[in-house]
């Protein structure tokens, strides 16, 4: 008897499932456990549960509660298609995120693009995240914002901040060190040019260093844990230009892969004037300058900074 029962079970189960569905179809408002027990006496609780779970996960029935009883109701085909639509929505969102590439996309932008409600989008995103299809990355631009991108993508530098950021923190000292090193290198090249050449034009030309050389020098120094790209070095050199210590010149050259047909040359320069006279006395940098007048509490005669400066 037992073996026969075991052998019969699978077939019966399928039968049970079909019969379950038929029962549901028969009573559109839903069937209760009791009804199932009555109609399918061979089906015990455990089997019933399995069937119910399966049907639920397949999206074929709904689980409802009526009073204290549970109701199983067949989902009508429209809503069944809605479920598929739900899948479509997911697909849509997934596609949007995929399109954003490694820059990621902000949740609000996802919403604009697919026109879904925020709650819906949130749900879909949670789903996708659990499925490990997408991930959220904190953007360095706005620390509260999260962007979503495909799971296996490396976030772009604009998001993470690139070489200059480690964990959202801007690495000022690192930048300063690089700044100083680049400058020293350029100065060395300029000094060498001055000594080697006598003709001023040749001197000038020799003191110009191409970006390539600077990049190589810095990379060889090995002060950076991360491999720095040429663009990285270029941004550093630009800060030197803004410091007024270096100037840049563009010369026509071979079109390279990064491709604009220009070679960028840099050299260190001397300032036009030494420090202006005003800043050689305390008044230049005085914090209470605007309150200072003769006869007031702050005045040239009572000035503490002047006194200190004159004493040295």
């Amino acid at each position: 008897m037992a073996t026969a029962a075991v052998k019969e079970e699978p077939i019966e189960e399928v039968d049970f499932e079909t019969r379950f569905i038929m029962l549901c179809q028969a009573s559109p408002e839903g069937i209760t456990d009791n009804v199932i027990q009555k109609e399918l006496p061979q089906c015990d609780t455990k089997q019933r549960m399995t069937i119910v779970n399966r049907l639920l996960s397949m999206g074929k029935i709904d689980l409802l509660k009526s009073g204290s009883k549970l109701l199983y109701r067949l989902k009508d085909p429209d809503s069944a298609s809605q479920v598929k639509g739900g899948d479509n929505q997911e697909k849509l969102v997934y596609q949007i995120i995929k399109d954003a590439g490694n820059k990621g996309i902000w949740i609000r932008d996802i919403r604009f693009k697919c026109n879904l409600l925020l709650t819906q989008v949130n749900k879909i995103l949670k789903n996708l995240e659990t499925k490990k299809l997408i991930k959220a990355v904190k953007s360095v631009a706005a620390s509260k914002k999260k962007v979503y991108m495909l799971y296996n993508l490396e976030p772009d530098r604009s998001v993470t901040g690139g070489a200059w950021y480690s964990d959202q923190d801007f690495e000022s000292e690192f930048v300063e060190v690089l700044n100083q090193q680049c400058f020293k290198y350029l100065e060395q090249r300029a000094a060498a040019a001055r000594e080697a050449k006598s003709d001023p034009i040749a001197q000038r030309n020799a003191s110009f260093t191409p970006l390539e050389d600077v990049w190589k020098y810095i990379s060889d120094l090995g002060i950076s844990k991360v491999q720095l790209s040429k663009e990285d070095i270029e941004t550093i050199l630009n800060t030197l230009i803004y410091d007024g210590k270096v100037e840049r010149s563009l010369v026509a050259g071979q079109a390279t892969a990064s491709g604009d047909g220009y070679v960028k040359l840099y050299r260190s320069v001397q300032p036009l004037i030494p420090t202006t006279g005003l800043m050689r006395m305390p008044c230049g940098a005085c914090p209470v300058f605007d309150q200072c007048y003769e006869g007031g509490a702050v005045s040239p005669t009572t000035c503490v900074y002047m006194k200190e400066w004159l004493e040295i």
Partner: peptide, 14 residues
């Protein structure tokens, strides 16, 4: 303070 500490000192003369 009437005379807060100055961050920057004057540059020596030329």
């Amino acid at each position: 303070p009437l005379f807060p500490t100055a961050d920057f000192k004057p540059v020596p003369f030329q």
